[in-house]
Amino acid sequence: MSALPRRIIKETQRLMQEPVPGISAVPDESNARYFHVIVTGPEDSPFEGGLFKLELFLPEDYPMSAPKVRFITKIYHPNIDRLGRICLDILKDKWSPALQIRTVLLSIQALLSAPNPDDPLANDVAELWKVNEVEAIRNAKEWTRKYAMEN
């Protein structure tokens, strides 16, 4: 593998020096492009109190192409599917090389606060979110308790 670009080294340093509240991102010991991420569920959301594990990978042509991010912890959310894949525009066509790991993770945290069932990835979840939000939120809380609060 080619040498780590300056941008990744610097970005990782800054991420360590000035961590984002509620988010931790630590590079893997054997692969500096692979990050172990933990996002805390935002306050006043059904995910409050949960700790959600994610994996983040910086592809070869990062930052020209977007990082690959996936939830490892199961989560009941209309824009996140059973495999933990996330439907978020900045991870797809709205990616800009001026964005960073930091901004991506903040956007994911914001997505937890504001689910968008009109642009769904998990259809069944989105459907329930639209027709019966109360029940959907109850499910999300239930899943948070079950899968994101174990340890």
Binding site: R6, R7, E18, A98, R102
Partner: peptide, 26 residues
Amino acid sequence: SSSMSSKAKVSRRCPPNSEECEICFT
């Protein structure tokens, strides 16, 4: 647009006649 990263930018001081590129961090 880059509001999220601008906070970080403010805290970093640049020498005169140079700027930090937000893409390569140089």
